[in-house]
Simulated assay, not measured.
Amino acid sequence: MPKLYVPKQYSTVVMGVSGCGKSSLGAALALAAGLPLIEGDDFHSAENVSKMRAGIALTDADRAGWLATLGAELARRPEGAVLTCSALKRDYRERLRAAAPGLRFVFLALTPAEAERRVAARAGAHMFPASLVANQFATLESPVGEPGVLAVDATAPLPELVAQVRAWWAGP
């Protein structure tokens, strides 16, 4: 697959609830575009990871430092980047947009039942338990209708998702 140059204004956050496929799509997009991948989960504090492993939902206060760090990571990459981050609330997305003007979001839309099935299937291999999926849906403020957002079906095959995002990047 040829590399696709994506200028800074096209730095992209792959977002959605746990289990939607952020890491898989983010890695594929970063590779396709020749951009660095920022895996959002790698930047959670030890306290946040402990809470999630214990089945305790994160609060806005828990996420504040994490979002600031992710914003700084985006700002450090003027060549652009692909970030995986749940970005569940509009306020969270606005914080990231402030750090990287022109930032785009790919929203991986998924049903609660499918998200729970996927998260349960990876039990033990990931810090996030299926018991927290309902909380993510309760917290989610859909980004559909916000500027710079592409919503895609998270159940589509990965190559199809990559093609959809690449076409969006290349569009007007």
Rank of each mutant, 00 (worst) to 15 (best):
residue 131 S to K: 12
residue 32 A to P: 11
residue 148 G to F: 05
residue 166 R to A: 13
residue 139 T to E: 00
residue 116 E to P: 01
residue 23 S to K: 12
residue 71 G to A: 11
residue 154 A to S: 12
residue 17 V to S: 08
residue 22 K to F: 08
residue 11 S to V: 08
residue 102 G to V: 02
residue 75 A to P: 00
residue 84 T to G: 08
residue 135 N to K: 14
residue 167 A to I: 06
residue 171 G to Y: 07
residue 14 V to A: 02
residue 76 R to P: 01
residue 165 V to W: 00
residue 13 V to G: 01
residue 137 F to E: 07
residue 81 A to I: 13
residue 136 Q to I: 08
residue 109 A to V: 01
residue 134 A to W: 07
residue 42 D to A: 14
residue 85 C to N: 07
residue 10 Y to C: 10
residue 149 V to Y: 02
residue 41 D to Y: 03
residue 143 P to L: 07
residue 127 M to K: 01
residue 125 A to L: 11
residue 78 P to M: 10
residue 111 T to C: 10
residue 20 C to N: 05
residue 43 F to V: 09
residue 16 G to A: 08
residue 153 D to I: 01
residue 170 A to Q: 15
residue 23 S to T: 15
residue 71 G to S: 11
residue 170 A to I: 03
residue 86 S to H: 11
residue 96 L to D: 00
residue 112 P to W: 10
residue 137 F to L: 13
residue 46 A to K: 15
residue 79 E to D: 11
residue 87 A to W: 00
residue 5 Y to S: 10
residue 20 C to T: 14
residue 2 P to Q: 15
residue 93 R to I: 12
residue 19 G to P: 04
residue 161 L to E: 06
residue 119 V to C: 12
residue 28 A to R: 04
residue 49 V to L: 13
residue 17 V to I: 14
residue 86 S to N: 04
residue 35 L to H: 05
residue 133 V to P: 05
residue 153 D to C: 05
residue 50 S to E: 15
residue 84 T to M: 04
residue 17 V to R: 01
residue 136 Q to A: 04
residue 120 A to Y: 06
residue 131 S to G: 09
residue 80 G to K: 00
residue 51 K to R: 14
residue 90 R to A: 12
residue 141 E to M: 04
residue 158 L to W: 04
residue 107 F to Y: 15
residue 160 E to C: 05
residue 19 G to S: 07
residue 44 H to P: 09
residue 167 A to K: 13
residue 104 R to Q: 03
residue 14 V to R: 00
